[in-house]
């Protein structure tokens, strides 16, 4: 059974899949002379969490960055192939990455709030995109985002404190609030919990699980346990190839590919 077939058959198994949000076909990424991704094709469902796992340097972060064209900011990075969000091609010079990034939010490995107040952190996106006409509207967006990020109760009385004064887990949820403040359709998360302690991790995971109701979340993680806990779909990358993609439950109990099996059981030879 080939990988491509595995994707196709496995995809229809997942009950949560309502429709396809991101459709990727034949994506290659080159950094200068080096090819980082080889012919990746997959379809990512909406309103679910898709986890990318794989050893370091396998191309999973690179692939994640294709979805909001963050690779554009790297000199010499060339992305070819088709990336469609809701059927619209985004890997296209005519699509402005700034517009794209307004609908594809991103959360990074290390919590990186701006060294400004909590309010300004969340309000920054809506401000630069002009999403709020009045101060009241902006206040509303900030509150909603913080509520959605489960942070409102903890910070509502100190919105003017610097975002950097929060704890690591709170900072990461603040960053998530900042991402959802511009009302994105897809949220990308690059190892969002790797710098957090287990309790903070659990809170962020709970948040991700709640956000799944409304967003398409794509997450890179090094923790297979985390992928197993929060994701509905899991994709395994190795050496720039998409090796296996399917429902998380399947991947973690009965992976089809030997390499996936070796990786998740900790047997890499």
């Amino acid at each position: 059974m080939t990988t491509a077939q595995a994707q196709a058959t496995l995809y229809h198994d997942i009950p949560e899949a309502r429709d396809v949000k991101v459709a990727i076909a034949g994506v290659d990424v080159h950094y200068g002379d080096k090819q980082a991704l080889f012919d990746v094709s997959m379809q990512i469902p909406d309103r679910s969490v898709t986890a990318f796992i794989g050893p370091s340097g396998c191309g999973k972060s690179t692939f994640l960055r294709c979805v909001n064209r963050m690779n554009d900011t790297i000199d010499g990075a060339v992305v070819t192939g088709s990336l469609k969000i809701d059927g619209t091609e985004i890997n296209d010079k005519t699509i402005d990455p700034v517009v794209l990034r307004a609908s594809v939010g991103m959360v990074f490995q290390k919590p990186n709030p701006f060294p400004k107040s909590i309010y300004d952190n969340v309000a920054y996106g809506p401000k630069i995109h002009g999403l709020a006409a009045t101060r009241e509207e902006l206040d509303g967006i900030v509150e909603q985002s913080l509520v959605k990020a489960g942070l409102w109760g903890e910070v509502s009385d100190r919105l003017t404190d610097p975002g950097t004064s929060l704890s690591g887990g709170q900072q990461q949820r603040l960053v998530i609030a900042r991402a959802i403040a511009v009302n994105p359709e897809v949220i990308l998360m690059d190892e969002p919990c790797s710098a957090l302690d287990p309790i903070a991790t659990a809170k962020v995971e709970e948040l991700i699980d709640e956000l799944r109701e409304n967003y398409c979340i794509i997450m890179v993680t090094h923790s297979m346990a985390q992928a197993a806990r929060v994701s509905q779909m899991t994709a395994f990358f190795h050496l720039g190839n998409l090796v296996e993609y399917g429902p998380t439950e399947e991947i973690f109990t009965n992976p089809r590919e030997r390499r996936t099996q070796d990786y998740i059981t900790g047997r890499f030879g």
Binding site: M1, R256, E257, R258, Q261, D262, T265, G266, R267, F268, G269
Partner: peptide
Amino acid sequence: MTQVSTHDHIVTSYG
């Protein structure tokens, strides 16, 4: 469809 790994575990004691 059997694909039991021939590799040893990275963590020897686990294996």
